[in-house]
Design a protein around this nucleic acid. Structure first.
Length: 260
DNA sequence: ATGTCGTAACGTTTACGA
């Protein structure tokens, strides 16, 4: 089963780029971030035409996550537990069933956190604490689990072309990296790093300052797996070439193949 | 030094978030 994560930076602006990639990559499941749309305005038809079930969790203007799946989506839940006052649409869960196992999917758009210090960074760190609690609860089930999306965290210096440029940024500050490591310490595997080592692998290039042309990127979109999912991992790749397409998102898809 | 997008709205331009 091929499962991808893609921060599309606006579903309406990205319809052509997204459907082109779907037709080429043929993923079974896609976790989308930054749909920037309310649920009622999400263009479902292009995806339903291609055989995808669509579940959205959007809000007006910003944020928003969704799942496209060729398999039925069961037990869909919206919103990250732990703060009933949080109105930002950044978390969605669903279950898919393969031939040999079921998989719980979690799609996330983790807060950016800039500027630091300040309330936005406090919100990011608090959100990561809630994410850890949710991951902990799901890991206790000891079943295949995938938590993927735009984490807005550069895990290590090797995950940026110019780490010095990000040293004071919310995406790379020691507290952000420590919170990300605490997720891994729970027993989650960074799927990409289970398959590929070394620097030079990025999922985001800023629109500004010729970042793509200079390959000035960062690796911030991640797919984390429970032990039961990691045991079934057979591939993980970043579809870098998507960034060179027409009217691209500033992120590219990352995907895993899991033998379910 | 600057450079870009996508979205919303008191809209033909600005503000915000990234």
């Amino acid at each position: 089963m091929k499962i991808a994560s893609f921060n599309i930076n606006g579903i309406k602006a990205r319809l052509a780029a997204l459907t082109d990639w779907l037709d080429t990559a043929q993923p079974d499941v896609v976790l989308l971030q930054e749909i920037k749309s309310i649920d009622e305005a999400f263009p479902r038809e292009p995806f339903e035409e291609r055989g995808y079930n669509v579940e959205t969790h959007g809000q007006k203007g910003f944020n928003g996550v969704a799942i496209l799946s060729k398999l039925p989506l069961e037990d869909v839940t919206r919103g990250l537990p732990g703060d009933p006052t949080d109105e930002q649409a950044r978390w969605i869960e669903a279950t898919v069933t393969g031939e040999h196992a079921t998989l719980r999917l979690c799609g996330l758009y983790l807060p950016n956190g800039n500027p630091t210090p300040g309330p936005k960074y406090d919100y990011k760190l608090a959100w990561m604490e809630r994410l850890k609690a949710r991951a902990e609860a799901l890991l206790q089930l000891e079943e295949p689990l995938l938590i993927a999306g735009d984490y807005n965290v550069i895990p290590q210096d090797e995950d940026a072309k110019r780490p010095e440029a990000w040293a004071e940024d919310a995406l790379a500050l020691p507290q952000s990296r420590a919170a990300f490591r605490r997720l891994l310490y729970l027993g989650l595997t960074d799927a990409f790093r289970a398959r590929v080592q070394g620097p030079g692998h990025y999922t985001f290039w800023d629109y500004q300052a010729g970042a793509w042309r200079r390959n000035d990127g960062i690796r911030i979109d991640h797919i984390l797996l429970s032990p039961q999912a990691a045991d079934r991992l057979t591939d993980c790749q970043i579809d870098k070439q998507v960034r060179a397409g027409e009217k691209p998102s500033d992120h590219v898809p990352i995907w895993v193949n899991i033998d379910l």
